[in-house]
Design a protein around this nucleic acid. Structure first.
Lengths: 339, 339
DNA sequence: TTTAAAACTGATATCGTTGTCATTGTAGCA
DNA sequence: TGCTACAATGACAACGATATCAGTTTTAAA
């Protein structure tokens, strides 16, 4: 149970040299089929697992990839992790996590240090880090591949997805189809490119329907529950208050909903509310939130997979770009406009 | 930017042998103060960082600890991670995550394989894995330390905390003080020892107040939102329905609350509901949930710290046992019993 | 056949660190 | 002074894999 066999043991058992065993392990081509079978048999028999440290030392690979994040939505983070982990567990890479403050002064130094210390072979950036060009450039000087889980950042052609903007567009169309025309939007955190995309999709729909966005209906949130609550207070106190609020994520929608309860505003009879992301809370709250579900876990899995492929030297385009379909989820919080 | 200095470079720069540098790095005692200063200066000058793989290969340490979990509450998991990560980042250990299915047939094989493959130096187990004796025993044969984030499991004296039970007791006292006597409990997942402890605290309070628990008021949930919703349906359809429901976590409480909205049962006027954990949802939902806050992040941090200490060979008792204080959070969902 | 090319295999150096053990220097004491 | 401890240091092997390059066998063409 305790003894771990080495490549040497396998070589002896199979009657070949250690280099041949190494070749088999790494799937190198120049091994005769018969030899390979023999070696594989010994590997199985001895339950041999290559020692990562030795591999790493010699080949300069650590088989470690980093997932860097800045305190996003916990649901979101959790999905990102599951997805990345799934991709890792199919290979022999491991994931190490690191929380970073996007706004901290020494962010870049810290990240670079972390990458060096842990000897990461690649990193995955989640929003808003994925929108931080300076950080990206700094990491690139280390010559390790990066993957992004996020909407695209124009300066780096990596992730092609108009998803956020398209989905916001579709959702807004739906709101308008329910008869609303006095619609407010609570925008997301300024540092997240997703905020902008969602806003763009929202505006596009309004424009196409000839609806003008009243400036007082344009609120700047930051994706937090509190910001939703606070901004609801601001916009719903107005005389000609909106009949629908487009929230750029579910947490802010939850904030709006809580505010409405306290003020006796009935949802969706007097006010419709929509969210974004389909977080857990979207269906646990009442009324449940109409929202947009993004296949975050799948996106993360893809990001990790393509990162691993890039580390392995596979530069094919298909690893870089992928578009995911998002889905409109209609629930109780969106209803017909009051007449 | 690209060249990484090695111990050899430092040794040359400082004019000492590599072994002496190694001693300085590892804080070994037998180094003269002047030499140490000299070496430290060179290390700084050359920005030397020891190569983990080489260290690991030679010393058998990987500086990796595993966090094993089975799909618990996402909020909970997130807190656990933050805490563990915090402890890690203060040392040079890294955290690797692995999701495991507690009920899967080959759980043990999988975990053992994972530990061997990643060459983990220790693992942290979260509930319900922390309650799985077979798993624990299997890991122990690998001779690596384990830490638990959980209420205590009697067979392993590691974590002394009557917290869950005490907190449940205190919360139930509070419910009774509000005039309730017909109280139902939705129990947590059977595999989690926390479920039992919360149940025990609940029962203790009832007993002390001379209240008998009606068997139909004892519901078996599994910590999920859905189970709360379903069991609410079951218990609230009864003729003599309870005026308060003690839910063993917040998600189930949210399920109950949603059910009540749909059926027009007003909270807390007609029914009081309490949760446990103080998850995010507890305050985002309306009415917000009266609950018990556990310092999960702190607990995780302690677990990781003590694990690292154990790996380092520090067996002092203080690393093994620690009790954390939990806090009663009273919010809108708990009110006076209807008269 | 012969022979060149290709396929396969192995001996040995090497990655960057720590472990072992030998050596040196120096303080303390009889 | 001479001796013993013990503190301080260093030379070199070792960890377990991969890289290099040379050697051997097989294949296929001449």
């Amino acid at each position: 149970m305790s003894y771990k066999s080495t490549i040497k043991d396998v070589a002896f058992d199979a009657g070949v040299s250690i280099k041949t065993v190494s070749r088999v392990i790494n799937n190198e081509p120049a091994v005769a089929k018969a030899t390979k079978t023999l070696v594989l048999k010994s590997i199985k028999k001895l339950q041999f697992k290559p020692n990562k440290d030795a591999q790493g030392l010699r080949s300069k690979k650590s088989f470690l990839i980093g997932l860097l994040y800045d305190n996003p939505n916990k649901y979101y983070l959790s999905d990102v992790q599951s997805g990345s982990l799934k991709a890792c567990s199919e290979t022999n890479y491991n994931l190490v996590l690191q929380e970073c403050k996007n706004n901290s002064a020494n962010l870049i130094t810290k990240v670079i240090n972390f990458i060096n210390l842990a000897n990461l072979n690649g990193v995955i950036l989640t929003p808003p880090l994925s929108d931080n060009n300076k950080l990206i450039q700094a990491i690139e000087t280390l010559r390790i591949p990066i993957s992004f889980i996020a909407p695209p950042n124009k300066s780096f052609e990596i992730w092609s997805s108009a998803t956020d903007s398209d989905a916001a567009y579709a959702l807004t169309n739906k709101i308008i189809a329910m008869g609303h025309s006095n619609i407010a939007i609570i925008k997301g955190h300024k540092d997240h490119s997703a905020s902008k995309l969602r806003y763009q999709g929202f505006c596009k729909s309004l424009e196409e329907h000839g609806i003008k966005l009243n400036p007082t209906n344009e609120l700047q949130g930051n994706f937090s529950f509190e910001s939703g609550y606070k901004l609801a207070d601001q916009v719903l106190k107005k005389k000609n208050r909106p009949t629908a609020i487009f929230c750029s994520n579910d947490s802010m929608a939850a904030g709006v909903i809580k505010y409405c309860y306290q003020k006796g505003i009935s949802i969706p009879d007097q006010l419709s509310v929509t969210g974004f992301d389909d977080s857990m809370i979207a269906q646990e709250i009442w009324p449940s939130i109409s929202t947009v579900r993004q296949p975050v876990e799948k996106m993360a899995e893809h990001a990790a997979k393509s990162l691993i492929a890039k580390i392995g030297g596979d530069d094919s385009k298909q690893n870089l770009t992928k578009t995911f379909k998002s889905e409109l989820i209609l629930r109780e919080s969106l209803g017909k406009a009051p007449s």
